Computed example of a mutant assay.
Amino acid sequence: MELAFAASVYPAANARRAIHEIKPLSSKLFTTKKRSFRNKFVCSVAVTPDGNRVSEFELENKKHDLLLAVQDTQRGLVATADQRSIIEEALVSVEGYNMGAPIDLVTLDGTWRLQYTSAPDVLVLLEAAARLPFFQVGQIFQKFECRDQLSGGVIRNVVRWSIPNLLEEQEGATLVVSAKFDVVSVRNINLQFEEIKIQDINISEQLQALIAPALLPRSFLSLQILQFLRTFKAQVPVTNPATGRRSVAGLYYLSYLDRNMLLGRAVGGGGVFVFTKAQPLEL
C-alpha cells in the first residue's frame, strides 16, 4: 500500500546530488548547504531502520490490544457498554496509523474472518444462534475479489451455519450475500447487492443414515436424495420491491487495512467491523 506521507520524502539520491553541486567560493554556498542539510535530515528520519521497526512494533501492539479487547465478546454479541467503549478507543488508535492512505485493492483482495462487530444485522444472527437450540452460526467472512481491478470489484459476505442433527456442526451450510462495490473516495466503497445464495450443504451422519440406512441396500431414490442435498443451491436476486432494481446498501468506510487486519465502518451508524486475514475460500 502507498503510504500517505510517501510524496513528502526526499530521495537519498537527491540529497547526495545537492552536496556535489556545492561550488567553492559560490555566493549561494550558504543557502545550498542549508537545503542539502534539510534534505539529508528528512531522509534519515524517513528511512532509518530503527525508526521503522519502532513504528511497526507500536502498531502491532495496538492491533494486539484491539484483538485482546474483542476476545471475550463472542464477536460483539455479549459486549458490555464498557467493553464497547474500550474497543472503540482501540479501534481509533489503530485507524490513526494509515488514516488518509488510499485503498490498496491488491491488499484488500482475499478472505477476511470476522472477529467483532456492532452491526445490528449481524448481531441478530448471533443472537438467534444463542437463543435457538436448532440454529448455529459458525465462522463469518468477507471475501473481496478485486486484485485485477482498478476501482472496484465483488464482495461476498459468507456465513457458515448449521441445524444440529440435520447438518454438520458449524459448517452444515453456507449463506453467501454477494455485492458489487465501487471505490467512490479515498476510503469509501459503495455497495450494490446482487444476490443471496445458500450452498455447500453438508448433511449430518444421522440424516444420511435416516435417508439411506447403512444396513440396507441403498436404492436409486435414496442415492438421488443424498446427491440432491449435497449439491443443492438456492439463489435469490436482491432487488428493491418499489423499483425492481438492484438494492443499494450504501457506503462502507474502510478505516484501516494492512496485510493481516481490516477495519470497517458502515456509514450512517451501521456498526463497526474487525476482520483478520483468513485462508482463501472457494465458493
Score class of each variant (00 low, 15 high):
V154M: 15
Q224A: 13
G152M: 05
V159R: 03
N202T: 05
R218W: 15
F30C: 11
N52K: 12
L254N: 03
T32D: 15
G172I: 01
T111F: 08
R156M: 04
A234R: 15
R259I: 05
A212T: 02
L25R: 13
L108R: 00
G172Q: 02
D65M: 14
T276D: 00
Q208P: 04
F232Y: 09
Q115L: 13
A266I: 14
Q142N: 06
W112A: 04
K233M: 08
I225T: 04
I203C: 07
S247F: 12
N14Y: 03
R259Q: 06
A81V: 13
N202V: 00
R245S: 10
V9K: 12
H64N: 13
L125E: 07
L262V: 03
V45N: 15
T73V: 06
E58Y: 14
V183Q: 08
S185Q: 02
Q206S: 12
L263D: 10
S204G: 03
C146G: 00
I86T: 13
E60L: 15
I198V: 11
R245P: 00
L66Y: 14
L207Q: 01
E205K: 15
P241I: 01
I189E: 01
R156L: 06
I155F: 01
S27A: 14
F41N: 14
L229V: 01
G268Q: 02
R113H: 12
R230D: 14
N98Y: 04
Q192H: 07
K197W: 08
D109Q: 07
L125A: 05
T117N: 04
Q142R: 09
V267C: 05
V45R: 11
I155W: 01
G244S: 05
L251W: 07
E56C: 11
L229E: 08
L283F: 09
N14F: 12
N157R: 11
V92L: 09
V124S: 10
Y97E: 08
P213M: 11
T80S: 15
Y253K: 10
A6D: 13
N52E: 12
D200L: 00
G51K: 10
N188E: 10
T31N: 08
E171M: 14
Y252S: 08
M1D: 06
Q227A: 06
G172L: 02
V183I: 08
T111W: 10
L263P: 00
A173H: 13
A79H: 00
Y253C: 09
G152E: 05
K63D: 04
L125R: 09
R187L: 08
H64M: 15
V248W: 09
R16G: 00
F181N: 01
R84Q: 07
F135V: 03
F193I: 00
F135E: 01
N157P: 00
E169D: 15
R53A: 02
E168C: 10
T174E: 07
E194M: 14
A101F: 10
S204Q: 07
S44A: 09
